[in-house]
């Protein structure tokens, strides 16, 4: 069966056909916006985009298609600096938006004053997921340092998620022991010693806790814990919110240089502003378990979000730069605590 030219031609024709099919452009619409976001927010923005599109059409008569890019938010920021033309960013780390100003000058330094609540339309905090009926009776941070408890969390060295938990624990200790550095150090060393597995990211830690059955408590975002509990109803996990924890902001900003270039400045602003509307806040709180600012929505969903003392990075470590330097750099506090 020799390969002849006719066959080759046919192959090329088929190739050309699939090429034409694959290159079909996205659905035509009046306006289009690119939102660069963190990796677990896909369904959140799929829902929100529908909400916003309806709102925008009502306001202007224009149909709008919002395209989504998802990834680790540091990687996303890097991509935008390298030329990914996102109009807006919706991230889970303040420092990743700062970098867009510092490295690329793509937005002004005071980006966090452009929208209410330091440009963070919703927030979350670090909490614990425990096994059915909370067999180890874990109620607050102190219980995590007990000798009979083992913990699972993402590594604070490599993930923002893990850093938040570390800072939350530190903030709690500072509240409890004040200036007594010795007691704070003992507590930090104590609970870090109880960590059974440091995973590289939030997803890996979830797998370790749920699928491999390791650990008595999983430490991550409260919003994610609700998702995990709902995904594994047969395991009947319980969520424990400690008495004090870290305020995890989810900042948003218009990437002004790109939005201007794409002719989307007004649309981009409206897109982020609408996140603060009652409908959007209800969606965020009810379907995605984020804490929100809207008073009425807060009252409706209060049962899901126990009151706690929320601490900012300024309260705990002064600033992100100082936190990185003092705690997470090589030879910093985290390394010292883990040395036995």
């Amino acid at each position: 069966m020799p390969l002849n030219l006719k066959q080759l031609k046919r192959t090329l024709a088929v190739t050309g056909l699939s090429l034409a099919l694959g290159a079909t452009p996205a659905l035509a619409s009046n306006a289009s916006l690119l939102n660069s976001s963190y990796d677990i927010a896909r369904e959140l923005f799929a829902s929100y985009n529908e909400l916003f599109a309806a709102h925008w059409q009502e306001q202007t008569g224009q149909t709008v298609e919002v395209r989504q890019s998802h990834g680790g938010s540091s990687r996303q920021a890097q991509a935008i600096i390298q030329g990914l033309r996102a109009d807006v960013v919706t991230f889970n780390q303040v420092t990743d938006i700062d970098i867009l100003h510092q490295r690329g000058n793509l937005l002004p330094a005071n980006w966090n004053e452009q929208f209410p609540n330091a440009s963070s339309p919703y927030y979350s905090t670090m909490a614990f997921l425990v096994r059915k009926d909370n067999p180890k009776n874990i109620r607050d941070w102190d219980d995590l340092a007990r000798a009979d408890v083992s913990l699972v969390l993402p590594n604070p060295k490599t993930s923002g998620n893990g850093r938040y938990t570390y800072l939350a624990a530190l903030g709690y200790a500072q509240l409890k022991w004040g200036k007594d550095q010795q007691a704070i150090d003992n507590f930090m060393r104590g609970w870090l010693n109880r960590v059974a597995v440091f995973d590289t990211g939030g997803r890996g830690a979830t797998n370790t806790f749920v699928d491999r059955g390791i650990g008595d408590a999983l430490l991550t975002f409260e919003s994610e814990l609700h998702g995990i509990r709902a995904a594994y109803p047969d395991q009947a996990f319980e969520i424990v919110v400690p008495s004090a924890s870290f305020l995890a902001e989810f900042p948003v900003a218009v990437v002004e240089r790109h939005a201007q270039r794409n002719g989307n400045l007004e649309l981009a602003r409206a897109y982020l502003e609408h996140l603060y509307s009652e409908d959007a806040q209800r969606l965020l709180a009810r379907d995605f378990s984020y804490r929100v600012h809207h008073e009425q929505v807060k009252a409706e969903t209060a049962a899901n979000f126990p009151e706690l003392r929320l601490l900012t990075i300024q309260d705990i470590a002064g600033s992100w730069e100082k936190a990185m330097e003092d705690h997470f750099a090589n030879g910093g506090k985290l390394d010292q605590y883990q040395r036995r």
Partner: peptide
């Protein structure tokens, strides 16, 4: 890729994206 859904997401990237999404 830039991971733009419905634009620059290839099948292997799509697998990871869905996995991260639970």
């Amino acid at each position: 890729s830039g991971n733009i859904r419905g634009e620059t997401n290839t099948l292997p990237l799509h697998v990871e994206l869905l996995y991260q999404d639970y």
